[in-house]
Amino acid sequence: MTVIVGEREIRLTGRCGVDEAEALLSALSIAPQSRVVLAAEHVHTALWQVLVALRPTVIGGAPDRFSADYILPLIAQKDALP
């Protein structure tokens, strides 16, 4: 299990495969105020999509430069995507 759901936070660790997108989605739907802690080596696009769509508070570091430069800002962005 690489998506770890805590009381007020959801931790992503290790290699988060595509199938864990569902777990992340349901955890965030149940507790939208949870913050998401990024501590993973790899995060599959499916999980990034959940984060971009639901835009929770995200702390921690992205596993690669592309997600740090271009995906994290999307999640933090206040306005919805065009």
């Binding site: 595509v18 569902e22 989605l25 499916a46 999509q49």
Partner: peptide, 9 residues
Amino acid sequence: PAEFDPFRS
């Protein structure tokens, strides 16, 4: 979130 399909790109 309720209708969101996490497995569609």
